[in-house]
């Protein structure tokens, strides 16, 4: 089934649910706004969000939480309209991302992204320090998000997530792809700090366009020599597919140091390696349903 068909089918189902979510046009996303009490937002890839009170919402990725990485986040409104022009919220987060890394297939990545440590399991005394699997890490984060609605919804975000080692030792970063390394930075690189800016403007009642710019910095792993900064940009669109469903589609670009090199030749024909930055481009796609009790 194509994504559009899936979205249309889901929209039909959701269209029968009570309470219109964006009857007055699509609302901006990724802002400091807190979901209204009793409102729930479900997404295919995004988190499950639930408004608990006028100032507090909680969110989690339920499938990821159940099988791969227990996680929960909250959003607490500090300032919000109509009392203030600017919305401001605090966002504490907690997750244990290492569960997926140390679990065997088919759900876990052991043996693929992380070592199996078969000898350690069979003969613990033979090479006791040789298993280079990451210990369990608790990733604790705090974010601050501010949104100002003027021509577009302008959202600035700053957040910091620290990986607290609960057991074992910290392993080396995967140095794989920017989004994967950023996700796992608290595990492998101790911390991830981020600032981002998003502009989100309605084009019509059923279409919004958003542009984002991001800068991340991660801690240094055990192998030195890697630029800890990653730059990112995202161009996204939100399409209303019913009164309470939307399809999001876009493209994300990351610019990072993934230890890539290239050969360059001098005038005499001799070569040397030169470090270059990596460019990763991935599509973004989601289907979001919002409803209320």
């Amino acid at each position: 089934m194509r994504a559009a068909d899936f979205a249309w089918a889901c929209g039909l189902v959701a269209g029968g649910l009570p309470v219109g979510a964006w009857a007055e046009g699509l609302s901006p996303r990724e802002t400091a706004a807190v979901l209204p009490p009793g409102a729930t937002e479900v997404a295919v890839f995004g988190p499950l969000r639930r408004g608990l009170s006028p100032r507090v919402e909680v969110s989690t990725h339920p499938l990821v939480a159940a099988f791969l990485a227990p996680n929960i986040a909250a959003r607490v409104a500090v300032l919000h309209p109509p009392d203030h022009d600017v919305s401001l919220s605090l966002e504490p987060t907690l997750s244990v991302p290492t569960m997926a890394l140390t679990s065997p297939p088919p759900l876990g990545a052991e043996g693929y992204l992380t070592p199996t440590c078969a000898v350690d399991a069979a003969e613990p005394a033979r090479a006791p320090d040789d298993c280079q699997r990451s210990g369990e890490v608790l990733a604790a984060g705090l974010g601050l998000t501010a949104t100002l609605e003027a021509w577009a919804a302008w959202t600035a975000r700053i957040d910091y997530t620290h990986g607290v080692l609960l057991t074992g030792e910290r392993a080396a970063p995967l140095d794989a792809w920017a989004p994967v390394d950023l996700l796992l930075a608290p595990v492998y690189s101790t911390y991830r700090a981020h600032v981002g800016l998003r502009g989100d403007r309605a084009v019509t009642d059923w279409l919004r366009v958003a542009l984002e710019a991001h800068l991340w910095r991660v801690g240094e792993g055990p192998i030195p020599g890697r630029d800890p900064h990653t730059f990112g940009a995202h161009l996204g669109t939100d399409w209303a597919t019913s009164a309470r469903t939307r399809l999001t589609a876009g493209v994300f670009y990351w610019n990072s140091d993934q230890r890539r090199t290239r050969l360059v030749k001098d005038s005499e024909g001799f070569s040397r390696y030169e470090r270059v930055r990596s460019h990763d481009v991935l599509p973004t796609l989601d289907f979001i349903i919002r409803f209320a009790d």
Partner: peptide
């Protein structure tokens, strides 16, 4: 250093 494919250890990488 016994790497995992040696079957006598579990190492997958080295420090610099």
């Amino acid at each position: 250093i016994p790497f995992w494919f040696d079957c006598w250890g579990d190492r997958v990488r080295m420090d610099r």
